[in-house]
């Protein structure tokens, strides 16, 4: 299971990078989203994917044998997803405004502030 997700993380990073290299600003947004999802999945997997291994056991319950599930990566991913969601919404709004101001969705038109 981990190796499958590892491949998926790789695919997400590769697809995101590919989209970032394209010249359309919409694909820029898609690329950023794909890469950040890849990172989320990566963090999620680092805790180890263990089925049926509860992290919390009620006081009167029976503790399962090790290894235990780790809830922390999921909490971290949850935080990262929420942050990523907000930032993506902002990025979309910014791209829309920038597209209106520049009047082109080609990245090469965005060269007025360049060095």
């Amino acid at each position: 299971m981990e190796s499958l997700i590892a491949v998926l993380v790789g695919v997400l990073f590769a697809a995101g990078t590919y989209c970032l290299m394209r010249r359309s600003i919409v694909k820029l947004v898609i690329g950023v989203v794909l890469i950040s999802q890849g990172a989320n999945l990566l963090v999620f997997t680092t805790g180890g994917l263990l089925a049926g291994r509860p992290a919390l056991v009620p006081p009167d319950g029976v503790a399962p044998p090790a290894p235990f599930g780790d809830p922390l990566p999921q909490a971290m991913v949850l935080t990262a997803i929420v942050i990523g969601f907000g930032l993506t919404a902002f990025l979309l709004a910014l791209v829309t405004r920038a597209h209106e101001a520049v009047g082109d969705d080609d990245i090469n038109a965005f060269n007025n502030t360049d060095t």
Binding site: V32, A39, G47, L72, P73, M76, L91
Partner: peptide, 18 residues
């Protein structure tokens, strides 16, 4: 900066996993 945050998240996640 979003890209840099993603790198940071990935790095921190891998360190946590290890």
């Amino acid at each position: 900066n979003l890209l840099s945050s993603v790198m940071f998240l990935a790095g921190a996640g891998i360190i946590y996993g290890k």
